[in-house]
């Protein structure tokens, strides 16, 4: 069973290496600029400077993304008029898949379309969905990989924290 033990060792080692890189709080750095193609117009991410932005990367085929929509709507409703906005960047290569998703889970916040995934490339996404909290100064402050329902209140506290700055 020597080889099996070696394999187990390899698995454990690689696990350790991967787990090391998932801390959500990051050193503040300017959020890379993005041109956002909304349904009706094109804007820049930097246009939202002065607001706290919850920047969410999603796709119609991603299961946790489905669970994040009701929560993002709730956050938008709660804080949308207090200097906060959700911006969701859709990465579906086919627009009709995104539209079909939104017809069932309507978004009450700006949705940008990036079928080529250029924004995802710029932000070097490690998983789907990935979300970033951007402070009023336009700096990336917190990153989340995946969407965990049980962490919703923690996410909300982070938003409140940045809004209070």
């Amino acid at each position: 069973m020597g080889p099996i033990r070696a394999l187990a060792g390899a698995i454990t080692l690689s696990a350790g290496l991967l787990l090391a890189g998932t801390a959500p709080v990051m050193a503040a750095q300017p959020a890379p600029e993005l041109a956002l193609q909304l349904a009706s117009k094109q804007v820049n991410l930097s246009d939202y400077k002065g607001q706290v932005v919850y920047l969410d990367f999603w796709a119609s085929w991603c299961k946790p993304c489905q669970r994040s929509f009701p929560w993002m709507n709730e956050m938008q409703a709660k804080y949308g008029d207090k200097g906060f906005t959700v911006i969701a960047i859709n990465l579906d290569s086919e627009r009709k898949l995104a539209d079909s998703f939104l017809s069932k889970l309507p978004a009450h916040f700006p949705v940008a379309y990036d079928p080529e995934g250029e924004s995802a490339q710029a932000y070097k996404l490690k998983g789907m969905p990935t979300s970033y909290l951007i402070d009023k100064a336009g700096n990336l402050r917190i990153a989340h990989q995946g969407f965990h329902v049980e962490k919703q209140s923690k996410y909300e506290q982070e938003i409140q924290g940045l809004m209070a700055e």
Binding site: S60, W61, L91, S93, L97, G117, A120, Q121, L125
Partner: peptide, 11 residues
């Protein structure tokens, strides 16, 4: 693939 390129694989 990149994480956002899983549309077909996710079917």
């Amino acid at each position: 693939v990149q994480p956002w390129e899983r549309d077909l694989l996710a079917k």
